[in-house]
Design a protein around this nucleic acid. Structure first.
Lengths: 197, 197
DNA sequence: CGAGCGATTGAACGCTCTCAAAGTGAGTGG
DNA sequence: CCACTCACTTTGAGAGCGTTCAATCGCTCG
């Protein structure tokens, strides 16, 4: 079990993929960079999620702690043996990879075809659904990440994200409170704004 | 072995995921739709690629033949047994899923953070690399799909794709010939335009 | 030859970005 | 307790990239 501080990068894209991680607490952002510094966050991970689920030689993305984070790490070189010893583990990994792929496809639709308002609405609904899946309430939603991180996840700028929150607030579908707590009074209306998906 | 005509949709998002497909010839587009008709193509498949590699109950995307297509299909209900009989198959599927995931992450970076010119350049380079991987020449590249499909893959409009091709043509890094044949005289310069990745 | 589809080009618009400044809140030190 | 700093957020104004709408071109096919 390891513990790291916010803003600490613990996986770097291109480095040898020596470990498989399992997040047990906190929020992690997984991202890719362009040479000029532009950043695309490909996902936010939280308790229970796996990281480094790649069968390439090197990590495909970097990962940074958004909040205080705890995780377990497992040496990849032992993975092959582990999978042979516990075949059912392999099927489970395949299921996880398949879910990640489905999420990635949803995100491609968002990035390629949705407007700023639809992106932010979809993002809030995704967090809400994820909270339910994790056994918490559907509402309120907690945003541990900054506006800049949200922007880099949604393919927007900080300013656009901020303005869009203001819009949604005025429309009465979100209420912003302190510490990233967001109340969603009308999920159905938000769903409507999210482009129907 | 099945054979289908161009423009024929043979997998519909949301339908029960009864089959796993293996493309043996031709090009397939895999896509998602928004209720109002906006389309995002999540990938183009060609010979050797798998489709329906999902462990959800239903297909996550639709699939349509771009050219004449041949494929094998395998009932998903028999998959579980197959994997138990041939454990090495499972590891192979995991590898394939992992590669797809890496490609999806690259595409997210493209859709979220690259300019139109970078998107088109990256697209051409991806096709070129894929051709090499498939044992063909690095050049010329073949575009079996329409400008509209390219646009729906790159998160742009047809007009922008067309204008960008014209730009790249004038810059001397691509030459457009008949039947979707594209020559890339200066891959290094194209790589530069592609945002370095 | 005419119809029809895909590709290209032009002109104008608009959503989002860029640049800039002000507001907010937590943490620090006097 | 208050002033100050610093990071994050919000708001404003203007610009730009890509979109929208529209027209033309080129090719294939009946």
């Amino acid at each position: 079990m390891h513990e790291i501080e916010p803003h600490r990068t613990f996986v770097t894209e291109g480095d040898p993929a020596d470990y498989l991680f399992n997040i047990t607490e906190g929020t992690v952002k997984v991202y890719k960079l362009l040479p000029d510094g532009r950043q695309q966050i490909t996902g936010f991970l939280s308790a229970g999620d796996f990281l480094g689920l790649s069968f390439q030689e090197n990590y495909g993305c970097s990962a940074e702690a958004v909040t205080q984070v705890r995780f377990c790490q497992f040496p990849r070189r032992k993975l092959s043996q582990l999978l042979t010893d516990f075949p059912e583990m392999e099927r489970r990994l395949l299921g996880i990879a398949s879910n990640e792929l489905a999420a990635a496809q949803d995100q491609m639709l968002l990035l390629g075809r949705k407007t700023a308002r639809e992106r932010v609405a979809s993002f809030l609904l995704m967090l809400s659904r994820r909270a339910v899946r994790a056994g918490r309430e559907i509402d309120p939603v907690i945003l541990p990440m900054t506006r800049a991180d949200i922007a880099d996840y949604l393919g927007l700028t900080v300013e656009t994200v901020s303005r869009t929150f203001t819009q949604l607030k005025k429309a009465g579908v979100v209420e912003l409170h302190e510490a990233g707590i967001v109340h969603l009074p009308d999920p159905a209306a938000l769903e409507e704004l999210g482009g129907g998906i």
